[in-house]
Nucleic acid binder design. Structure first.
Length: 140
DNA sequence: GCCAACGTTGGC
DNA sequence: GCCAACGTTGGC
């Protein structure tokens, strides 16, 4: 089991769109490093869903519903792939970027170190901590 | 709206 | 192969 974080602009494709559709084809990735991360995803891997730009933070938990296959939106360009994701549950409260930055245990997150990467691996301990921070009962 | 960081492109 | 110019992302 591997853990990941994907970014989306909520005005373009937010958590509520994801819930309404029940499944998302994660297309549009045009960065080699992010693509390599998509290719490394395995069925049922857990994925943190992050809102960039506005209402910034981790908002929910998803899982990999289909592993990487060629991006159908660019059939002539075999460099790019998509995965399919399904929602698992929303976090009880958003874990904001400010909270993440304030947490020393998360200082090595790719999110912090490589702010423009849109698909990135997350360590199991980091993943668990972010989920815990998203529980309303946690004392933050 | 601005700007820093970063990736890509193209001239040499 | 280097590097300047340019476009995009994303935080503030």
């Amino acid at each position: 089991m591997n853990y990941w974080l994907v970014k989306s602009e909520p005005d373009v494709y937010g958590w509520h769109h994801f819930i309404e559709q029940g499944r998302a084809v994660w297309d549009g990735v045009r960065n080699y490093q992010a693509r390599n991360n998509l290719k490394a995803m395995q069925l049922d891997d857990h994925v943190l869903f992050y809102h960039s730009v506005t209402n910034i933070g981790v908002v929910g938990l998803a899982k990999v519903a289909r592993e990487a296959y060629p991006d159908p939106t660019v059939p002539d360009d075999l460099r790019w792939v998509v995965v399919e994701l399904e929602p698992v549950m929303p976090l009880e409260k958003i874990v904001s970027l400010a909270q993440i930055k304030a947490e020393p245990l998360l200082a090595n997150l790719s999110l912090i170190r490589q702010s423009r990467l849109s698909v990135m691996p997350v360590r199991p301990d980091e993943f668990e901590l972010i989920l815990k921070m998203g529980q309303s009962t946690s004392a933050m």
